[in-house]
Design a protein around this nucleic acid. Structure first.
Length: 546
RNA sequence: AGCGGGGUGGGGAAGUCAGGUUAUCCCGCGGGGCUCAUAACCCCGAGAUCGGUGGUUCAAAUCCACCCCCCGCUACCA
């Protein structure tokens, strides 16, 4: 990969009505974190931003349920989630929120620009309104009897029983999902974004975007083939960013139409806080910048169509997503994660059970790159015990304890022909392969490639049997093989750093370095360890579970 | 229903777009080896009609048609 000007690495903003679950974690923040860390190690200029998505009906409803203000609910959850991301080792440069003043100001002036550019128009529509809650109800917040199959709990958009698409006014005996009152249908004015106007430019964008995962490219092209429809920008919600349009008093901007702009506003906020209020422009208006999004498949159209459309419509020359990496879904024991049905594991409870790198490894190993993948407990156990503990942990431990016992805790000095050793050649090759996988965001393949170094290390060690060499008095032979193993361990520490930051650093310290592995460059992985370096008494890296 | 993605040994995943020697990897299982190491490690082996049916081809997991099943989206859930 050529060195480029700037990287804007981003991941989907979690909706903070609740703590994210493991599926959200692998699809967005964790994947983005690996790439952000890798790019930084490569010496690239990276800014990694995301934030809490806070507006809209579900949060308003949750706040009503708990008898508190939406803002109070969001403050609480934003703080909690910020803290959790920190504990998960997600290396954001800025984790912002849609309640940030920078975001709100940016969004309001951005939409005024779109209006001036002729992409916003108003129209009257008729929508369900709950007279008791005093709010307009999104389709899914109206339930009633399905007119086709008679199912009692059909939602206003689709019947869960027969699968038919519905409209709220088609439901028999409709009721408000929040309070069960029968909704009225009221006329209200809304502002729309003229998406069809941008269709030719969007088609060109989708066809030419340098990196879109297959699911993202195909489904976007398919939507374009069907033809885009205007998208409403405003809502009658109380909880949101006040719409800036003349005559739109009391309206807010639809969450999706503002949250995606957070990528820009979070960059602005980051540089304002650093005292360089103009610097964000170097990232967003430089044609060589690479704007990368990590999302789950449900988010695809918002990142491949709506966001680019908004950015284009501003006519200010924003960079469009250079890459969109969309994962399939992580399932839990074969089922969708569901808060209401308590199916799944959430990122707070995960950390109460096991160390963060156990989770990071398992999630990255399972990353649903081509299809839905199921998380199961037996699989979790297998990966932790066999991969982390037996293969990686034991390789490092056996080499270090041998070094400690036989070479008095010093990296032995090898004969100069050590460089011809098979394991070293394997490490060099795997370094290249890992780099090229990461360059194309194939995180799963990259991780497997790194881990296979430990496997090869074990094999090499068994073959060379330095313990046998020592017994026969062949200290030179033992020195070479242990030296090569220690060098491989150094490579492992560097190459694991983007994936398992804590364990990688433990390995790094374990071979006697006193700084942080995260200060090192990626290329350091193929620089041999210095003979004579003192290594501390080894400690096991992982422990088996259950 | 339409559109997008998927179905590969017992489990989990690559490979499919550019068809081609014994279908790859991680586990599990059976046997053997080693004894530095956390009962860890290494080697060998068994185990697959590549969702189904039909077609194209000298040759199909891969291309075409139809069917079955799983997931997502379908524009006011986010």
């Amino acid at each position: 990969m050529k060195k480029v000007a700037k990287w804007i690495v981003t991941c989907a903003w979690p909706y903070v009505n609740y703590v994210p679950h493991l599926g959200t974690m692998i699809g967005s923040a964790l994947s983005a974190d690996v790439i952000a860390r890798y790019l930084r190690m490569k010496g690239e200029d990276v800014i990694f931003v995301s934030g809490s998505d806070e507006h809209g009906t579900p949060i308003e409803v949750e706040a009503i349920k708990r008898g508190i203000e939406p803002k109070a609910l969001c403050d609480e959850n934003h703080l909690k989630i910020t803290e959790l991301f920190k504990r998960w080792g997600i290396s954001f440069d800025n984790y912002s929120r849609t309640e940030s003043p920078h975001h709100k100001d940016f969004v309001r002036s951005f939409y005024m620009k779109l209006m001036r550019n002729g992409y916003i128009y108003e129209e009257e529509v008729e929508l369900p309104f709950c007279p008791n809650c005093q709010i307009f109800l999104p389709d899914r917040f109206v339930t009633g009897q399905c007119p086709y199959c008679g199912f009692e709990d059909a939602r206003g958009d689709q019947c869960d029983n027969c699968g038919r698409l519905l409209e709220p006014d088609k439901l028999v005996k409709p009721r408000c999902t929040i309070c069960s009152t029968s909704p009225q249908f009221k006329r209200t004015k809304h502002w729309f974004f003229d998406l069809p106007k941008l269709e030719p430019e969007l088609r060109e964008y989708v066809e030419k975007a340098p990196f879109l995962t297959e699911n993202a490219r195909n489904s976007s092209l398919s939507l374009l083939r069907e033809g885009l429809k205007p998208r409403s920008v405003t809502r009658d919600n109380r909880w949101g960013i006040p719409a800036p349009f003349p005559g739109a008093e009391g309206k807010t901007i639809y969450v999706w139409m503002e949250a995606v702009l957070g990528y820009v506003s979070a960059t602005i906020e980051y540089f304002v806080k650093k005292g360089e209020p103009e610097k964000w422009k170097e990232y967003w208006f430089d044609g060589d910048s690479r704007f990368l999004c990590f999302i789950g498949k449900d988010n695809i159209p918002f990142h491949t169509l709506i966001l680019p459309a908004l950015l284009i419509a501003s006519r200010e020359g924003y960079v469009l997503p250079w890459g969109v990496s969309a994962t399939e879904y992580l399932l839990f024991e074969g089922q969708k994660f569901s808060k209401s049905r308590r199916i799944g594991v959430w990122i707070d409870e995960a950390l109460e059970m096991y160390p963060v790198d156990y989770w990071r490894y398992v999630l990255l190993y399972l990353r649903p790159e081509g299809r839905d993948v199921s998380f199961t407990w037996p699989l979790f156990k297998e990966l932790v015990n066999s991969h982390l503990n037996d293969t990686l942990g034991n390789f490092v431990y056996r080499v270090l304890s041998f070094t400690s016992r036989v070479f008095s805790s010093k990296v032995p000095t090898p004969r100069s022909d050590w460089i011809k050793e098979e394991l070293w050649e394997i490490v060099l090759e795997k370094f290249q392969r890992t780099s090229s996988y990461l360059d194309s965001f194939r995180i799963k393949d990259a991780l497997q490639e790194v881990m296979s170094i430990a496997r090869e290390g074990n094999r090499y060690l068994n073959e060379k049997a330095p313990w046998d060499a020592i017994r026969k008095g062949l200290v030179d032979e033992a020195s070479i093989s242990i030296y090569v193993c220690l060098t491989a361990i150094k490579s492992l520490a560097i190459m694991l750093a983007p994936f398992m930051p804590k364990s990688a650093n433990d390995i790094w310290r374990g071979i006697g370095y006193t700084n942080s592995v995260h200060e090192e460059k990626w290329e350091e992985a193929i620089k041999p360890i210095e003979p004579g370096r003192e290594v501390p008494t080894p400690k096991p890296l992982f422990t088996k579970i259950k």
